[in-house]
Write a protein that binds this DNA or RNA. Structure first.
Lengths: 207, 207
DNA sequence: TTCTTCATGTAATTAGTTACATGATTGA
DNA sequence: TCAATCATGTAACTAATTACATGAAGAA
């Protein structure tokens, strides 16, 4: 019995990190902040829970260390863990899930002011630039031979490129949206749709 | 007190729909499926809960109708609701949240086979094409003058364009990734990073 | 008239977050 | 030596999901 509850994608995300090397829980949270969290964001406290589940399933082992008189836990993957990870990699995946409060607000922009809408897309642009800069720094570190886990560069790059493309897309969309909204009158309810832009958008959606 | 718990972004998403017109709960779930759900996905059952909260806060009213002898509830926004919505539109928003099991798997692709990785990116591409087709159909309906809520086209288009751009980006990324992975040897652990591709990616990230 | 799908919810469960507590380390 | 930050967790809470139940309408 013991069951220990089903493994989720988050469990496998942690398991994947353990496949690289053993980590203490805190180190796992650092990795989440830096890399993994961009495509699978979870709160730090979750990372204190999930490895226990992996241990209960026999996919990881835990070892107590101490720092001063304070204990800490370091987790390592088992052979069964590597096998479970490999099986997971063969299974079909869910498509991307996107949540954007900003786009949601743009969708309802006619209920607010034109300036609200402009501020919202400007915030989206700022967000994209900031994320992009951090992401680009990682890439540059690799180019300089300073990236952590150089041996993982081939896979890292493909995921990193996804982020680069995404941030760039958000930024370009924000610029385009700014241009559109600037053409609105003060009361967005009276905004006339730019039919040329609609046509161009439909064309862009036709590959 | 009564408090009725705090309003979340999901509450405002529903409130925004009610600002367009009154809807029954089921109709709200339809809208989620069709439009809103692409940027703020929530399960149908949530849409049976949230409007009650809006009513408790005085932001909406509910009216019982019947279909046969079966009752159903139709919600409408109040003036206070419109005001709350307008205030929400002025507030700062969270940036986009992206979750991708597929990119996660690519990140750990060296723990599986090359074919697994190819299958995963192919699935991402298929997902993007499918979503894109549905999204494009909406745009084409508008062009044909058949879109629902033509008066909302100006705002709809900006949100719709975000989706178009996103699906396109995913699809192009998947093609690029396929080309990269095809160069890997059978065992992805031995994959040599394509340094030219790294350089090009860093350049793309430099605006 | 029965089966299927559409429609309208409620209940049970869970995955995840926020808040809290506290020891260790560093540096002003 | 005091404050701030890094590190290590647990507890309380909640937002959201899945599962379930059932009536109505339309199709076979």
């Amino acid at each position: 019995m013991s069951s220990a509850s089903r493994l989720t994608t988050t469990s496998y995300a942690v398991l994947g990190l353990l496949a690289i090397q053993p980590w203490s829980t805190y180190e796992l949270t650092r990795q989440m902040d830096r890399s993994l969290g961009r495509v699978w964001p979870r709160a730090a406290s979750k990372l204190y829970e999930e490895p226990k589940k992996l241990v209960a399933h026999g996919l990881a082992t835990s070892r107590q260390e101490r720092v001063g008189k304070r204990p800490r836990t370091v987790y390592a993957i088992t052979d069964a863990g590597r096998q479970a990870l490999a099986e997971w990699l063969q299974r079909p995946s869910e498509g991307p899930v996107l949540e954007s409060e900003q786009v949601l607000k743009v969708f309802f922009a006619d209920q607010g002011t034109r300036d609200d809408a402009l501020a919202t897309v400007a915030a989206a642009r700022a967000w994209a630039e900031e994320r992009n800069a951090a992401n680009r720094d990682v890439g540059q570190a690799y180019l300089a031979g300073e990236g952590a886990f150089q041996e993982r560069l081939a896979t890292n790059m493909i995921a990193g490129r996804f982020l680069t493309d995404f941030y760039r897309m958000v930024s370009e969309w924000a610029d385009w949206a700014t241009g559109q909204i600037e053409q609105w009158p003060d009361d967005p309810q009276r905004a006339e749709p730019d039919m040329d832009a609609v046509r161009e958008t439909v064309r862009r959606a036709t590959w």
